[in-house]
Amino acid sequence: MDQFEKHIRDNKAVFDDHRADREKIWANIASQLNEERTKEIPLWKSPMLRIAASILILLGISGAIGFNFFASPTTESQFVSQELQDIDMHYQGLVSYQVQLVQNNSQLSDADKEEFLSFMVELDAEYEQLKLEMQNNLDNEQVLEAIVANYRKRIELIENLLQQLNESKIKEDDYGYTL
């Protein structure tokens, strides 16, 4: 370092000749720091909220683990529920078609239709219960069979009713011939 540099460094105080507007600058600093405090503290620095957040996270994690654990045989349950859906679709289509036939039938009185449909409603309720049971025991074949049986019963009932109606129609026709 030469004399020139040394002289400047020794007299550095001469270069510090500005005075800051302390109050004004501090007012701005304090307001910015306060802003930060009101933004941050309620969320992350409050111990209560920290505890609450921790509990929520723990519940979330245990919930996710529990869900995965209880729904463990995933491929199997997917397979069963897919099977159930297929059966459901098939029978639902049949039943609704035949219920429509009954409702459109002109030979049946309204009272008869109502009686028949109330019976169907009972079977519907049973079916809903079986479906719930199915959700609890996805791989329970007995429940699956019961659901199928429920559908079959409905279809059978409708078929019987329609058959009876047709038979009486034939009889009436035959009767006409004999006359």
Partner: peptide
Amino acid sequence: VDAMYNVSMRFLGIKEDAEDIVQDSFVDAF
């Protein structure tokens, strides 16, 4: 504050700019 203000003034030469820089610097520092 005065030392920092002088540092910034030597670079910027404009009072308002130096004040802004000093203010931001203290906020960042804290």
